[in-house]
Write a protein that binds this DNA or RNA. Structure first.
Lengths: 115, 115
DNA sequence: TTTATATTTCGTCGATTGACGAAATGAAAT
DNA sequence: ATTTCATTTCGTCAATCGACGAAATATAAA
């Protein structure tokens, strides 16, 4: 139960974690879908998700063999909800982020996973 | 002119930099005053200030041999102003931050510096 | 129960960060 | 012009971070 005031900002200090948050704004995703879009090792993506979950930016819901992650709809920490609100209109002009969002809408977990 | 989306959050990802921002909410300070309160090497404080200035959280004004730093009253980046507004009511319950603010009000640069 | 698939945990490694002191810079006082 | 004091820049070092693959875990399918 550390009171590390910087953790919330550290969670946002990585481009791949920001990409994940922006993707989840479009719709909930499982680990393998995010892995496919970011082109990182599964273990790396899982770690990023655990950091975002630790700071309550996202929540997880198990669905069979998949774990779905989504933006936390009701964060208890006001700082978290403020930042999430900001993210709605931040970095929407970024090529990378736009590309990610397009991939998100076209993604099918049954095709992408299990290779 | 890099487009590093994470820089703004990296600037806030250090406790000493958050302490500096919270102190500057009380009043403008020079490097040696901040150094005295944080109990760090001058070069370290100078580096922290340059990072905060780089992201437009703070501005500098030269006054003789001193360099005064203060919260940027009119940030052009909306993310910066949003975060600065948030900081007004964030972490005000922290012992460390409260202690810093008390020291700030009692500090005299003519006594503290030049030793 | 065995097999397959999705995810997490663990150990390692190179890159980045934050600390320092020493040296360089800039401006005021002598 | 020289000295003094505040600040910045530079090089170094230990600690942290983000990447990976391998191994462990969990659940679904066979």
């Amino acid at each position: 139960m550390s009171k590390d005031r910087t953790k919330i900002f550290k969670a946002l200090s990585d481009l791949n974690r920001l990409r994940i948050l922006k993707m989840l704004q479009t719709k909930p995703l499982c680990v393998c879908e995010i892995t496919e879009i970011l082109q990182l090792a599964t273990s790396t993506v899982s770690k990023h998700l655990s950091i975002l979950k630790e700071e309550s930016f996202i929540i997880e819901q198990k669905e069979g063999k998949w774990v779905n992650y989504s933006i936390n709809p009701r964060p208890s920490d006001q700082r978290v909800s403020s930042v999430l609100n900001m993210l709605d209109f931040w970095i929407d002009d970024d090529k990378l982020i736009i590309g990610d969002k397009q991939k998100v809408t076209g993604v099918d977990r049954n095709e992408i996973c299990s290779r």
